[in-house]
Simulated assay, not measured.
Amino acid sequence: MLSQWLIDIQSDDLPRLHNFATGLQRDLAAVTAGLARPWDSGAVEGHVNRIKMLKRQTFGRAGFRLLRKRVLLS
């Protein structure tokens, strides 16, 4: 299904999608594995997002010690 979509994109007149499709074809094995595997990194992304939010809230007001304390306590 993905390979047929890539073929269809190459036949269309959409140069930006051509670049995207070319990038996908360069590492087609990784793209296919990423779509077929049952696991995801959603939980990790949630923690990273939470830490970034805490960092933004303390930007300019506190140093690393307070950020560390907020991350460990939340």
Rank of each mutant, 00 (worst) to 15 (best):
P15W: 02
S3P: 01
W5F: 09
L66P: 02
R37V: 08
N19W: 00
V31G: 01
V44R: 13
A30F: 04
H18E: 00
S41E: 06
Q57S: 11
R56N: 12
A62H: 14
P15Y: 03
D12P: 01
G46I: 09
V31W: 10
S41L: 01
F20G: 01
D40P: 00
S11T: 13
L73E: 12
D12S: 15
A29M: 05
F59V: 05
K52Y: 11
L67Q: 08
M53R: 15
P38M: 02
L14S: 09
Q10F: 03
R26W: 01
A36N: 15
I7N: 07
V48M: 13
R16L: 13
G60W: 04
L14K: 14
A33C: 06
Q25P: 00
K55F: 10
R70E: 03
L2V: 15
A62P: 00
K52M: 13
L66H: 11
D8S: 08
F64Q: 06
S3Y: 01
T22M: 00
R26V: 00
K55Y: 12
L67S: 07
A62M: 04
D40Q: 10
K69N: 06
T58C: 04
R26I: 00
W5Q: 10
L66C: 05
A21D: 01
S3Q: 12
F59G: 05
R56K: 15
L24W: 09
S11Q: 15
S11G: 03
L14Q: 14
M1C: 05
L6K: 02
F59L: 11
T22L: 00
L54C: 07
A21N: 03
N19S: 12
G46W: 07
S41G: 05
L28E: 08
